[in-house]
């Protein structure tokens, strides 16, 4: 499964509790759509660290890295290239 598919599946299953692919666009903002709350952000970080083996630094906890499928995929790719 591609990184994008893995991330999409995770967000759909764990926040929208759905298999409906149309429920989430890759550029949907998690914040604007109310998908992620104050502890949800921690869950996303655990997911990235456990499933992709990357470490999210404090100053990387920003919407530009974590607030949509597109942003997360870019962030993972950037981290894995380091």
């Amino acid at each position: 499964m591609s990184t994008r598919d893995t991330v999409r599946k995770y967000i759909l299953e764990n926040y929208l509790f759905s298999d409906d692919q149309s429920a989430l666009a890759d550029d949907d903002s998690f914040l604007d759509k109310g998908i992620i709350d104050s502890t949800g952000i921690l869950e996303v970080i655990y997911f990235l660290e456990d499933d992709f083996g990357i470490t999210v630094e404090d100053d990387e906890m920003m919407p530009e890295n974590l607030d949509s499928v597109n942003n997360i995929v870019s962030f993972i790719e950037k981290k894995q290239a380091q």
């Binding site: 914040l31 104050s38 921690l42 906890m61 920003m62 919407p63």
Partner: peptide
């Protein structure tokens, strides 16, 4: 646990 001390953290706080 909301250790969002950087400026970007405000965006999260604002949404939550």
């Amino acid at each position: 646990y909301l250790d969002l001390s950087k400026k970007q953290g405000v965006i999260y706080l604002k949404n939550f």
